[in-house]
Design a protein around this nucleic acid. Structure first.
Length: 260
DNA sequence: ATGGTGGCGGTGCCA
């Protein structure tokens, strides 16, 4: 089972890229972020025609997440628990069936948090604490799950070009990295890092300053696996192809393969 | 050096 995550930076602007990439890469499950539209704007007919069912949590202009799957999706959550007044569309979770078992998948769009310090950074850290609590609860099920998405956190210096330029950024502040490590230390596996020990591999490149052409990016899109999912991990990678297409998203898909 | 680019929506906000 191939599971991928991709921040498309507007599905309206990236619909053709999504359909093209689904056909080329043939994933079983895709976790999408930054749809930047409400549910009624989702191109359900085109996604269905490509062979996928979809569960969408949308929002006007900002955020928006979705799960795409070749097999039916049993939705288990449409928001991250822990802050009832949080209206931002940043989480959707469901259970999908594989050949030999089932896996729970969560699509995550973690707050950017800039500028830091400030209200937006406080929201980011609160959101990460909520994710920690939710992951801890999910682990009690002792089932296979994948929490994947745009985490907006650079885990280590080897995951960013010129880390010294990012020391004041919300994506690389010690408190952000500590909060992510706290979540991983519950017993989760960063799929890409587990299968690719080398640094200098990125999932996002700024539109500005020729970052893509210079390969100056950072790795902020992650697939975190429960122990039961990690036990079935056979491969993981970053598909840089769509980032090189005309009018691309600034992110490119990160994927893992599970024997489920 | 405080920009640089892109999406949304039709102005500034967000990333």
């Amino acid at each position: 089972m191939k599971i991928a995550t991709w921040n498309v930076n507007s599905l309206k602007a990236r619909q053709d890229h999504l359909i093209r990439w689904l056909g080329a890469f043939d994933p079983d499950v895709v976790l999408l972020q930054e749809l930047k539209g409400t549910e009624d704007k989702f191109p359900m007919m085109e996604v269905n025609a490509a062979g996928y069912q979809a569960q969408v949590v949308g929002q006007k202009t900002y955020n928006g997440v979705a799960i795409l799957s070749k097999t039916p999706i049993e939705v288990t959550a449409t928001r991250l628990p822990g802050e009832e007044e949080d209206e931002q569309a940043r989480y959707v979770e469901g259970i999908v069936a594989g050949v030999s078992g089932r896996v729970r998948v969560g699509a995550i769009y973690l707050p950017n948090g800039n500028p830091a310090p400030g209200e937006k950074y406080d929201y980011k850290i609160r959101w990460m604490r909520r994710l920690y609590a939710h992951a801890r609860n999910l682990l009690k099920t002792e089932e296979a799950f994948v929490l994947g998405g745009d985490y907006n956190v650079i885990p280590e210096p080897q995951d960013v070009y010129a880390p010294d330029q990012w020391t004041r950024d919300a994506l690389f502040l010690p408190e952000s990295r500590n909060a992510l490590r706290h979540i991983v230390n519950l017993g989760l596996t960063d799929a890409f890092r587990a299968m690719n020990p080398e640094g200098g591999r990125y999932s996002w490149w700024d539109y500005r300053s020729g970052s893509w052409d210079r390969d100056e990016g950072c790795r902020i899109d992650h697939l975190l696996l429960s122990p039961q999912a990690a036990d079935t991990l056979t491969a993981s990678g970053i598909d840089k192809t769509p980032r090189g297409w005309d009018k691309p998203s600034d992110h490119t898909p990160v994927w893992c393969e599970l024997n489920i």
